[in-house]
Design a protein around this nucleic acid. Structure first.
Lengths: 348, 348
DNA sequence: AAAGAGAATGAATACGTATTCATATTTTAA
DNA sequence: TTAAAATATGAATACGTATTCATTCTCTTT
């Protein structure tokens, strides 16, 4: 009964569109004169198989252009070899570099990247729900954070989650970050050491942990060294935002000697505003410091002094951590902080 | 026998780690007092179901925090709702923007993006092989092209492929591109109209269709208008490459009046080289034109005259085309060219 | 040489959902 | 009111692979 049905179906298909025939391990088995199990074993690792039969199977597979079905495999093996990555802002230099690093490194481990984009104002939980339907082996969230309910749900179904470049207190979710507080402090020290006294801070998204910590470290250290008046403005992580805020500050007659921007892209905006709106020279008339060390920061036109985030080590670590969680070797909730490095260039 | 085995397994698991129990439609069915089929129908669309039973099922599902398994669904429904995207250079501004557009638009259609990164010098066929194992519904290739064997194989297994921002003659693969020849011609006209006579071209990857066509259009039009000496250099699509080549040109005493660069990122490099290595003013002493219109091109520091690629329309079209191919509504091989738009800014 | 260990293979089945087919129930038509 | 049509649901099975269990065959070991 089954066989007849099967054949009828195939026949219909073939008549309809000659070429579209799906080759399965059963077809290979038939051609090679072995069982389907054997074909499966020939494509796995560490299976007991005679060299001879293996060769026979692979030859048949080649002949039919057989390609194992990863979807079917995932169903039985209970792991997809897919890692979900959730990003907002995937087109910004820092995050696109991060994504690239993740993708390449995962690929080398035989894993694939399922990418999700969170648009501003969209509900991340809804997106996460979709991610989880695909039974990803693990999840990296680089933008936006995760609600505690969703975190718990991930934990329940056994999907490890790692936050990258942000963390969420009280959610029991591991995170890999740059030490933003220390970065802020280092900038404060550097600027005070160079004799600046009129300081400003232009932040990004005021609710993000990155922004909070960078400001916190900066402000804290300034106060420790006796400087308490700091001009603070927040908005969002973008060139336009940096440009606009810097312009406003200067127009309001509050031109500082130096602005510490919460990210390079904001810093570039601020620098351009100073230069093109007021013809101010950097660093003589207004100094700028950024955070991230994106590629553009090193271009001579900007030569931006900044805190470098060690993206490669961070992604490397994040993947290792995720792997160990996937293998259930590590179930602790960790917050790993990487120290940033002050890169001194011309802008301050 | 099966049931006993099943229960034993669950029991073991629960003892080992209390929380990790996979909820399936069978569990939901049991709680709701219906069959598994009914649960399946409750989550599909356009199925005959009483409001009452549907509500009952959804309530049970909610209670158990059930989430349909997309992998299992893919196996039966024969489509994954996953689109594969192959990129090299995913961190460059143009491609990261492209990727973002694709991801967001696909998501809105309920599709997911499986991302593959091709590193320089890596074999793309091997990567494509992996993509195909996941039985993606369709494939977008934005970097590197596709071998004709692989194209044929995709066609055989019924996976539609679309090249984006490149095309391959003789492979019968559809492509969505900017009209690069016309773009090149437009730049030629613009520059000749403004009276430039000493022209240079700095290309990207000399084998890419983008580079070939942009140069072709540019050179063709120059010749049509009687200008035959054009300085041509190719290397790769990067800031560093643009910087280095521009520097070399000038050092060799061949400073042109204007350089047409095959991409914005190359143009920015060239501009910076002129400015920082030789203190040349743009556009007075050396004019620069790019291609793409990435965000940075509009920043006042660069104010780059360039050809704008209509990325949003192009991605939109590419997705529509892919969709219609997935639904087998369109099996033609198309090459869709979008006209670029000359954006006149300060650099030329 | 016989028995037992070990290796190679096949048969059967699980993975979780969608769908077809059959059946029970309700609605419509006559 | 009854036959027929339509609707709602359940039972069974397919999707393609991995794996467990059983079986056959080969090789040691005494």
């Amino acid at each position: 009964m089954y066989k007849r049905c099967q054949m009828k179906k195939k026949h219909t298909k073939n008549r309809h569109h000659n070429s579209t025939k799906k080759i399965t391990s059963v077809d290979v088995a038939r051609l090679a004169g072995v069982s389907q199990s054997t074909v499966s074993r020939a494509f796995g690792t560490g299976n007991e198989l005679t060299e001879e039969t293996k060769k026979k199977v692979l030859k048949a597979a080649m002949e039919l252009k057989y390609r194992p079905n990863a979807i079917a495999r995932s169903l039985t093996s209970q792991n997809t070899n897919i890692v979900g990555i959730v990003m907002a802002n995937a087109k910004s230099p820092f995050y696109s570099k991060t994504l690239d690093e993740f993708t390449i490194k995962l690929q080398k481990l035989g894993k694939q990247t399922l990418l999700f984009s969170v648009e501003k104002g969209r509900d991340i939980d809804e997106i996460l729900s979709h991610v989880l339907e695909y039974r990803v082996d693990g999840l990296v969230i680089t933008s936006a954070t995760i609600s505690s309910e969703m975190a718990e749900e991930c934990a329940n179904i056994g999907t490890p989650v790692i936050l990258f470049n942000r963390y969420a207190t009280g959610t029991n979710v591991s995170a890999v970050c740059c030490d933003n507080v220390k970065g802020g402090r280092d900038v404060a020290d550097y600027l005070l050491d160079r004799g600046y006294t009129q300081l400003a801070y232009i932040g990004g998204n005021p609710k993000s942990s990155t922004n909070i910590d960078r400001l916190k470290g900066f402000q804290e250290r300034l106060q420790e060294r006796g400087f308490s008046d700091l001009l603070i403005r927040n908005d969002e992580y973008s060139y336009e935002s940096g440009y606009r805020i810097a312009k406003e500050l200067i127009l309001e007659g509050k031109k500082p000697e130096v602005i510490f921007c919460a990210s390079d892209i904001v810093a570039l905006g601020a620098m351009d505003a100073a230069k093109h709106e007021f013809n101010l020279k950097t660093p003589e008339e207004i100094a700028i410091v950024g955070f991230d060390d994106i590629e553009m920061a090193s271009w001579p036109t900007y030569s931006l002094t900044t805190i470098q985030q060690p993206i490669e080590e961070m992604t490397e670590f994040a993947i290792d951590l995720l792997e160990s969680k996937i293998k259930k070797m590590n179930t602790k909730c960790e917050l790993k902080l990487f120290p940033g490095k002050l890169i001194k260039r011309g802008s301050a």
